[in-house]
């Protein structure tokens, strides 16, 4: 646990901000709260290194716009995006726009704090990230053609049924391929699979 490390929370919902302040404070982080992407960007240049934790859906500038802005400013701050449950296409897009990671609301505290810690550690250390990316790329390369098709479908946010229809195979068979993909990619959940795949620069389309 990295004490006194900074987390910048951006969420338009006051109760979310307050509860994240409470949780992350209890976990030993220094927390700064912002009620929107605009107010964060205004303060951004004066802020020290830390992890940005931003909601994706916000009135005015949303999480996606924030990612684009930070990319344009060549910001060194790692960003974790909070998405709604099962919003895979949005998560994939966020990762492509340079988000370090994403978490689905509601989330496990361990998962969130783990992601923040990883972001804070790797945020400055690009080499470690590269090594991981190469490792993931190797896992992707081990997938069969069918497994790769299933992975692409999942990245596009499709359900098993939809993938089955697209490729003319039964949903049961897709389930088998999907399990293989999870094993080979060493992913414990769909969201982890998405993170890994996006890091390996897999294009969903």
């Amino acid at each position: 646990m990295s004490h006194n490390a900074h987390v910048y929370v951006i969420d338009d919902d006051p109760s979310m901000r307050d509860s994240l302040d409470f949780l992350l404070g209890a976990a030993g982080f220094d927390v700064s709260l912002f009620d929107g992407a605009t107010s964060f960007l205004k303060a951004h240049t004066d802020l020290g290194f830390g992890c940005v934790l931003s909601d994706v859906r916000m009135p005015g500038m949303d999480g996606m716009d924030l990612l684009r802005q930070l990319k344009a400013k060549a910001s060194a701050l790692p960003v974790i995006i909070m998405t709604g449950h099962g919003d895979i296409p949005l998560a994939v897009e966020a990762m492509k726009l340079g988000a370090f990671d994403f978490v689905e609301k509601p989330f496990e505290d361990e998962r969130l704090i783990g992601a923040i810690n990883t972001a804070l550690q790797q945020g400055g250390d690009k080499t470690k990230g590269d090594a991981l990316t190469r490792d993931i790329a190797a896992r992707v390369a081990s997938l069969s053609l069918r497994e790769r098709q299933v992975l692409d479908g999942l990245l596009a946010g499709l359900s098993n049924k939809q993938i089955a229809r697209d490729h003319g195979i039964s949903p049961r068979t897709i389930e088998v391929y999907r399990a293989n993909v999870m094993t080979k990619m060493q992913a414990r959940s769909l969201s982890e699979l998405i993170r890994l795949a996006v890091k390996a620069n897999i294009q969903a389309d």
Binding site: D13, S15, M16, D18, S19, L20, F22, L23, L24, G25, A26, A27, R57, M82, G84, H85, G86, K105, P106, F107, E108, D109
Partner: peptide, 21 residues
């Protein structure tokens, strides 16, 4: 779903934070 995830996430945050404390 989005609206519901807000209070649920907040509840989880308060609970887990309390446990940590």
């Amino acid at each position: 779903a989005h609206e519901l995830s807000q209070p649920l996430a907040a509840i989880s945050n308060y609970m887990k934070g309390s446990r940590r404390l």
